[in-house]
Amino acid sequence: MNDKGLVNFRDIGGIQVPSGKLQSGYFFRSGQIAGINQEQYSFLKDQCQIRDVYDFRSTDEVKQAPDTDISGAKYYHIDILSDKTSNGASLGAMITDGNQVHENMLKTYESIVLSESAQKGYHDFMIGLLKDDAPILFHCFAGKDRTGFAAAVILKVAGADDQQVMDDYLLTNKLRVQANEELLNRFKDEMDQQQLDNLHTALMVDPDYLRHANEVLLDHFGTFDDYLKNGLNLPTDYVAQFRNKFVTR
């Protein structure tokens, strides 16, 4: 599928899982869709037939760059990290002093698993999926952390193994090459080399981040199923309902 240059865009469906295949054409992930061009707009509206857009960005991020409104689609703003006073997944927080980026990202992923705003946000998102009978797009700013974790949860619920989940997660590093270069160019006159290096690191995903999220999840909840039940407060038959709806034999 030609993504028309949409940043970090992909359909996470189509993969084989033990009970069949996760439907393609339902779950699209991307970076923010602010200021997209007419061709990209038509692609999302007519080809992907997006009917629900879930935006995981902070209120400030949304104010600075509101999503392009896709006619016929409902828009849901779910601020995943509103509990965090400094939103580590926003652009401003990515450019830290010294060499703290890796450490900061690990902390961000802890918040993605444990903060109340994330648990409530992903609860609302996952419940929304069962109500949706049409394709959805979910995204944050870069489409890599808050979105990457949401994609991982969907894939695991569908029955994907850890390698399949990690493969989708790491695809971000390939799909953001051009967008990352443009961002670095935009800031190259305002930042010193250390800040630019930090920004570059922050714009990448690292297997450590997702692995750390998984460790935190298991430490606190014991199993992924218990995270769904006790962390996200989803019904005990959620996985069965999801697979019944979205996994084809």
Score class of each variant (00 low, 15 high):
Gly222Glu: 06
Phe27Val: 09
Asp189Cys: 05
Glu116Arg: 15
Met166Ser: 04
His139Leu: 02
Thr248Ala: 11
Asp79His: 08
Thr201Pro: 00
Asp67Cys: 08
Ile50Asn: 09
Lys21Pro: 01
Thr96Pro: 02
Ser71His: 13
Ser58His: 07
Asn104Thr: 10
Gln241Pro: 09
Asp69Thr: 15
Asn180His: 02
Glu215Cys: 04
Glu190Leu: 10
Phe187Cys: 09
Ser71Leu: 14
Lys188Phe: 05
Phe125Ala: 08
Ile112Thr: 01
Asn8Gly: 10
Ser71Phe: 13
Ala160Val: 14
Asp79Val: 05
Lys45Gly: 00
Lys4Arg: 15
Leu81Ala: 03
Gly121Trp: 02
Glu190Gly: 06
Leu22Arg: 11
Arg57Asp: 05
Asp79Ser: 14
Ala142Lys: 01
Arg57Gln: 06
Thr147Tyr: 02
Asp124Trp: 08
Leu170Lys: 09
Leu175Met: 10
Lys245Ile: 07
Lys120His: 08
Ser42Phe: 05
Asn173Cys: 08
Leu81Asp: 00
Pro18Ala: 10
Asp67Glu: 10
Gln23Val: 11
Ser86His: 07
Thr236His: 10
Leu210Met: 01
Asp162Trp: 03
Leu91Val: 05
Asp167His: 10
Asp206Glu: 09
Gly128Gln: 09
Ala202Arg: 02
Glu39Cys: 01
Phe28Pro: 07
Ala34Pro: 03
Phe9Gln: 13
Val113Met: 03
Ile36Ser: 11
Tyr76Ala: 09
Ala152Phe: 04
Val205Arg: 06
Arg10Val: 09
Thr201Glu: 11
Glu215Lys: 12
Ala118Cys: 12
Ala151Asp: 02
Gln40Pro: 08
Gly143Pro: 05
Gln195Tyr: 04
Gln49His: 12
Met126Gln: 07
Asp60Glu: 15
Glu190Pro: 00
Gln195Asp: 00
Thr96Arg: 11
Pro207Arg: 02
Ser111Arg: 09
Phe149His: 09
Arg146Cys: 05
Gly72Tyr: 07
Asp46Arg: 14
Ala152Ile: 03
Ser19Thr: 15
Arg249Cys: 08
Arg211Thr: 14
Asp192Val: 08
His77Arg: 15
Gln193Asp: 14
Ala160Ser: 14
Ala160Arg: 12
Leu184Asn: 10
Pro235Tyr: 08
Gly148Thr: 06
